[in-house]
Design a protein around this nucleic acid. Structure first.
Lengths: 189, 189
DNA sequence: CCTCCTATTGAGCGTTGCTCAACAAGGTAC
DNA sequence: GTACCTTGTTGAGCAACGCTCAATAGGAGG
């Protein structure tokens, strides 16, 4: 009987990787609570129960997926003690994985925990940028301003790339100039 | 028997207003899909079924609630052909209803439809600000930049008021200066 | 070939969103 | 005052979904 689809037995690490990969694909299209556990399981060719074996709850699963996406982003926006390099890496990442980024961090359910991961990522980016600008122990307004500037950068980059504008350099230049200006303004408070 | 809690019979408009009011209160604390229909109904002292009579689906209910919050915000940031007045109104609103705003538009589930309402609101704000700055038919980069600047303003205002900083004037000044600069930068592209 | 570890499953429970047919409050007509 | 009729209101019940648990089976090691 070759009907039975030869149940493969994978190692734990393999399965986790596979499941997270599926999440990275599925959860970009529609938000979590519109994606059922059964769907993910079906896509992976396993039973619901097994998913719950690896991720105690649906939230836990989703958190892992979002974390994975966050790590990818941070890897793309490497330190390199140059603000321009960071911003370029960031823009390039969103150009490459726009729908994924939007789906996971924005259009999807921004519950407390997702917001938390998103914040952590943005905080890390802020730290990198401030250190690249030579800002050591900046006053609170500057920290808040840089953090908010990343929100600006996120929004602008997503919309910009959404309109399929190809002049990436113009975008990066605009972002960097705005950053300089914002830091300058916040400093004088 | 005064045991029976005297079932009151309200007009349709009244009930809707009551239910939306409850939503405005409940959905600020935790995101939608953590709030059950039964809870809302219990709070209102009615049966689940009645809620579904007024709002065909839970989403429809939530959308109405978010819409109501959006209208409130727009009312607070009136035109007044002065950019400063608009920004001041915006900041004042978030100072007053911080948790509500955050709960409905950010910490809560940003499904497509909520994102849509949020976008509509921000678009309207962008239009107002651009018209206040005397920008008629601005080029696309300027539109995108102003839109992104609102994301900056939202983030900064929320964090700023979160730290209980009292110098509202400094915040407004910073926001307006950043806006000027961003518009200037985007114009030259 | 036996054994043991663990990846894997199926049956099932509780909650939650949603439907539907029936009930009752209150204004109107006679 | 009573019959009526519009419509606000309810309770029972279904289906989907998240999650649990005891039991099964694949495969590496002796």
């Amino acid at each position: 009987m070759s009907e039975a689809p030869t149940r493969v037995r994978r190692t734990a690490a393999d399965r986790r990787k596979q499941l997270i990969g599926i999440g990275l694909r599925m959860l970009t299209v529609r938000p979590i609570h519109q994606v059922t556990v059964d769907e993910v399981a079906a896509e992976a060719g396993i039973s619901r129960s097994l998913l719950f074996h690896y991720f105690p709850t649906k939230q836990d699963y989703y958190v892992e997926v979002v974390r994975a996406a966050g790590r990818r982003l941070l890897r793309s926006a490497q330190p390199g003690d140059d603000a321009r390099a960071i911003v370029e890496g960031y823009v390039a990442f969103i150009e490459r994985r726009r729908t994924q980024y939007v789906g996971l961090f924005r259009a999807s359910g921004l519950d407390d925990w997702v917001k938390e991961i998103h914040d952590e990522t943005q905080d890390e980016l802020s730290v990198r940028v401030m250190s690249a600008l030579g800002l050591v122990e900046p006053p609170e307004p500057v920290v808040l301003a840089v953090r908010a500037w990343w929100a600006f950068a996120e929004e602008l980059t997503i919309e910009w790339t959404g309109r399929e504008r190809t002049d990436r350099e113009a975008l990066v230049g605009l972002l960097l100039s705005a950053l300089d200006n914002v830091v300058l303004l916040a400093r004088d408070i």
